[in-house]
Amino acid sequence: DLSALRVEEVQNVINAMQKILECPICLELIKEPVSTKCDHIFCKFCMLKLLNQKKGPSQCPLCKNDITKRSLQESTRFSQLVEELLKIICAFQLDTGLEYANSYNFAKKENNSPEHLKDEVSIIQSMGYRNRAKRLLQSEPENPSLQETSLSVQLSNLGTVRTLRTKQRIQPQRTSVYIELGSDSSEDTVNKATYCSVGDQELLQITPQGTRDEISLDSAKKAACEFSETDVTNTEHHQPSNNDLNTTEKRAAERHPEKYQGSSVSNLHVEPCGTNTHASSLQHENSSLLLTKDRMNVEKAEF
């Protein structure tokens, strides 16, 4: 173990290094160091905050020279020094078990990766560091076993998940096959086929009936047209017969005018059967003409 005197000496050296690497504005270890034209180094955030307070150039807090945003430059070497100082402080805390008085939040800088452990060898070769390295080497064999167990647990979990997924996939297939086998029997399929065939026959029977009705309507229309044509021909046949009657009536009127007047009046009210309204109107006109002729003949006879 380190003596108290040596611990104090190391602590004083760390404090001196820390004062050199402090920012003059925030009085902390410089984060993202930036250098000016006057070779003074500050935190990048502190300098941008200072420049944004005034429009135009501002003055350096140490030498009062003008500073602009374009004049600022990043210093990589200074950032490396800060990183190495942080590593020294971490090693000091691990070796002594004491917390550094002016320690900052170094938890963000710590890294437990194997590459980081290899890099620590180049920091300080001390008894405390050696003991700590031995402890780490002793704890390393235990870690692979834990990793193997965790991997086995994960693989077993994956296997159970896969088996569950396969079961879920197989179950719908089985149910679907069961439904297909038990849903419709052979008799049901035959009945469905016969039902479809009967429906098709009914459709075939319905369509000819409609065509037959249309044919019957067409035949009825044709018969009505033929009947009207026969009526017209009958009226045409009746007209010459009426003319013959008129000639006979004229002759009778010349011989017996008194008797014919009474008979002509009675004939006005008689309509021949089986004739249309057109034929009756023609008869009325003929009878009126005959009456006028008879009157003329009677007057001539009187004179």
Results as ranks from 00 to 15, higher is better:
D1P: 06
S3T: 11
A4C: 03
L5Q: 14
R6A: 05
V7A: 03
V7Y: 01
V7Q: 08
E8L: 10
E8S: 09
E9K: 03
V10G: 01
Q11L: 10
N12I: 00
N12R: 03
M17V: 01
M17Q: 01
M17L: 04
K19M: 01
I20G: 06
I20K: 00
L21W: 15
L21R: 00
E22S: 04
I25R: 01
I25Y: 00
I30E: 00
I30L: 09
I30Q: 09
E32W: 03
P33V: 15
V34A: 01
S35A: 13
T36R: 00
K37Q: 09
C38T: 00
D39R: 09
D39V: 03
H40Q: 00
H40I: 00
I41W: 15
F42H: 00
C43K: 00
C43G: 01
C43A: 00
K44V: 01
F45V: 13
C46V: 00
L48S: 14
K49G: 02
L50T: 02
L50S: 02
N52V: 02
N52K: 06
K54L: 04
K55A: 09
G56T: 13
S58G: 13
S58R: 03
S58E: 06
S58V: 04
Q59P: 14
Q59Y: 02
Q59I: 08
L62A: 02
K64C: 02
K64I: 00
K64E: 03
N65S: 08
D66C: 04
I67R: 00
I67F: 04
T68W: 07
T68D: 07
T68F: 00
K69M: 04
R70Q: 13
T76R: 03
R77V: 15
F78W: 05
F78M: 15
S79N: 05
S79K: 07
Q80C: 02
L81V: 06
E83S: 05
L85T: 01
L86S: 13
K87G: 10
K87H: 09
K87S: 10
C90W: 12
C90R: 10
F92I: 03
Q93R: 06
Q93M: 02
Q93H: 08
L94R: 12
E99K: 10
Y104C: 06
F106P: 12
K108I: 07
S113M: 14
S113Y: 04
H116G: 08
H116N: 10
E120G: 12
S122V: 15
I123P: 10
I124M: 15
I124E: 10
Q125N: 10
M127W: 15
G128C: 05
N131P: 09
A133H: 14
K134R: 15
K134V: 10
R135L: 14
L136R: 11
L136K: 09
L137T: 09
Q138D: 09
Q138H: 11
Q138P: 08
Q138R: 10
S139P: 12
E142H: 09
E142T: 12
E142C: 10
N143K: 14
S145V: 14
S145H: 11
L146N: 09
L146I: 10
L146H: 08
L146E: 09
L146W: 10
L146M: 10
Q147A: 09
T149H: 09
T149R: 14
L151D: 12
L151E: 15
V153A: 08
Q154H: 05
Q154F: 03
L155T: 14
L155A: 15
L158I: 13
G159P: 14
T160C: 05
T160P: 08
T160R: 02
V161E: 11
V161Q: 00
V161H: 09
T163E: 14
L164W: 14
L164S: 13
R165V: 06
Q168H: 10
R169Y: 13
I170W: 15
Q171R: 07
Q171P: 15
P172H: 08
R174Y: 08
V177F: 03
S183Y: 01
D184G: 11
S185L: 04
S186R: 08
T189N: 07
V190D: 15
V190A: 10
V190I: 12
K192Q: 03
K192A: 08
K192R: 04
A193E: 15
Y195G: 03
Y195I: 04
S197D: 09
S197I: 10
V198H: 13
G199V: 11
E202G: 00
L203H: 08
L204V: 13
I206Q: 04
T207V: 12
T207F: 07
Q209S: 03
G210A: 09
T211S: 07
R212M: 09
R212G: 11
R212S: 14
R212A: 10
D213N: 01
E214V: 06
S216G: 05
S216N: 06
L217V: 14
D218R: 05
D218S: 11
S219M: 14
C225G: 14
E226T: 09
E229K: 09
T230K: 15
T230V: 15
T230Q: 06
V232S: 12
V232L: 05
T233C: 03
T233V: 13
T233A: 12
T235N: 08
N246K: 04
T247D: 03
T247W: 15
T248F: 11
T248Y: 07
E249C: 04
E249D: 04
R251G: 05
E254V: 14
P257H: 03
E258V: 10
E258A: 14
K259E: 11
Y260V: 12
Y260D: 15
Y260M: 12
Q261L: 09
G262M: 06
S263L: 04
S266C: 10
S266G: 14
N267Q: 15
N267L: 14
N267W: 15
H269D: 05
V270N: 15
C273V: 09
C273S: 06
G274I: 03
G274A: 08
N276T: 01
T277K: 05
T277I: 08
S280E: 15
S281E: 08
H284S: 03
K293N: 05
D294F: 13
R295E: 08
M296S: 07
V298I: 13
E299G: 03
E299K: 09
K300R: 09
A301N: 15
